[in-house]
Design a protein around this nucleic acid. Sequence first.
DNA 1: CTAAATTTACTCGTATACAAATTATTTTCC
DNA 2: GGAAAATAATTTGTATACGAGTAAATTTAG
Lengths: 135, 135
Amino acid sequence: MNINDCIFFLLTKCSQTGVKFWAQKVSSLGVTAVQAMVLGFLSEEDMITSRQLGERTTIDSATLTGILDRLENMGYTKRQSNPDDGRSIMISLTAAGKKVAFDIRTLVDNANQEFLQKLSKEEEAMLRGLLRRLK
Amino acid sequence: MNINDCIFFLLTKCSQTGVKFWAQKVSSLGVTAVQAMVLGFLSEEDMITSRQLGERTTIDSATLTGILDRLENMGYTKRQSNPDDGRSIMISLTAAGKKVAFDIRTLVDNANQEFLQKLSKEEEAMLRGLLRRLK
DNA sequence: CTAAATTTACTCGTATACAAATTATTTTCC
DNA sequence: GGAAAATAATTTGTATACGAGTAAATTTAG
């Protein structure tokens, strides 16, 4: 079995390389790659339910619980009960969380470009389009 | 931060979708997606050192130790000492392992095709080429 | 209206992924 | 030859990822 011929393996390795690259970019902020993504996302759409956050980020609810635990421990997010529905919780950024999220947003575009610098603009657009269709 | 604009996120989600698809294909064999990959790889290049296996599959040595523990427990692989170098170990498939690996190899091409069926042959080749450059 | 079904977040257990430290062995270099 | 550097595999600790099950709250059916 040639590893490169297996699309699952190829996607995994490519993703791991990218995530490691991104993790290194945000490591100075003291957050992991995934935590940075969640914070960056919340900086656009704050005060939403955990379920909505999970939908938008396509992070499983069991996984999200742990991520929110750690972000909360670091003082970046908080959980509040939802007056409209006792089952769900509202997630929002703290002041400190907003600050880190801002830093993350200034990093992400640059990191994207740097990671994709081997590709031309056409190739990048092609790649994004193909990945979106497989997602 | 738009999730789809972040290449790291897009790659991760695409990879997760692919891995889940592949995991489902091999679940009847009682192995995980990664375990199936390792077995499939060993069916081509058996009796190599753990370090070589890690290089070929780009699986970290710490991760590989655990994977080999589980494969060994299932009776699919075995570790033997390397007479040429006391530090390293030789990995090989058992008879049972060869049988499962054979089944895996019959599954993988089909799974690849099925996962990529939304893409034309040209698009598939393009995707593989782009991913290899980012890997 | 109330019992059943559904939904939400969480817990639990298992499997990667990976950085850092450890142990045993081998290689290098003087 | 022997100390120092390098290498191989493992261990340890933390962070996802995810299936399965749970408790509490809400919605749906009859």
